[in-house]
Simulated scan of single mutants.
Amino acid sequence: MLTEEQIKMARAALGWSVTDLAKHSSVGARTIHRIESEGGLAVATQANIKLIVTTLEAAGIEFIGAPNDGPGVRLWLHFDSQ
């Protein structure tokens, strides 16, 4: 299961701002801010979560660990976000 922190870590690994992720995923920046807040994933739509995860994975991110067991991300390739 994904955590809010993993989304933030993934953006950081790619050097993406919330605006960059919004542009690449077609999910609004305000929605991403809300999802990244504490408890935000619980109220997010599955469609938006899927768009975000798919976008980040396509950019080379692998989500690792579980919420209660060292959640994190791994960057497999660098995607030029510009």
Score class of each variant (00 low, 15 high):
1 M>L: 03
2 L>W: 07
3 T>I: 07
4 E>G: 09
4 E>W: 11
4 E>V: 11
5 E>H: 14
5 E>P: 13
7 I>P: 00
8 K>G: 00
8 K>C: 03
8 K>L: 07
10 A>T: 03
12 A>G: 06
12 A>F: 09
13 A>H: 07
14 L>S: 03
14 L>A: 07
15 G>V: 13
16 W>K: 06
18 V>E: 09
20 D>L: 09
20 D>Y: 14
23 K>A: 14
23 K>S: 12
25 S>H: 07
25 S>Q: 10
25 S>M: 09
26 S>M: 14
26 S>R: 14
27 V>C: 02
27 V>R: 00
27 V>A: 01
28 G>A: 15
28 G>K: 15
28 G>I: 02
29 A>R: 14
29 A>Y: 14
30 R>A: 15
30 R>L: 11
31 T>V: 13
31 T>P: 02
32 I>K: 03
33 H>Y: 15
33 H>T: 12
33 H>C: 12
35 I>C: 06
36 E>V: 12
38 E>S: 15
40 G>H: 08
40 G>N: 10
41 L>V: 02
41 L>Y: 01
42 A>T: 13
43 V>I: 15
43 V>M: 13
43 V>D: 10
44 A>V: 00
44 A>W: 00
45 T>M: 10
45 T>R: 15
46 Q>F: 11
46 Q>N: 05
48 N>V: 00
49 I>C: 02
50 K>R: 14
52 I>V: 12
52 I>W: 03
53 V>P: 00
55 T>E: 05
56 L>A: 06
56 L>H: 04
59 A>S: 13
59 A>K: 10
59 A>D: 09
61 I>M: 04
62 E>N: 12
62 E>T: 06
62 E>F: 07
62 E>K: 12
63 F>C: 05
63 F>N: 00
64 I>A: 02
64 I>V: 14
64 I>C: 03
65 G>Q: 03
66 A>Q: 07
66 A>F: 04
67 P>E: 01
67 P>V: 01
67 P>Y: 04
68 N>T: 08
69 D>S: 08
70 G>P: 01
70 G>Q: 10
71 P>I: 06
71 P>A: 05
71 P>V: 04
72 G>P: 03
72 G>T: 01
72 G>W: 07
72 G>A: 06
73 V>T: 05
73 V>E: 01
77 L>E: 13
77 L>I: 13
78 H>C: 02
79 F>V: 08
79 F>Q: 11
81 S>R: 15
81 S>F: 15
82 Q>G: 14
82 Q>E: 13
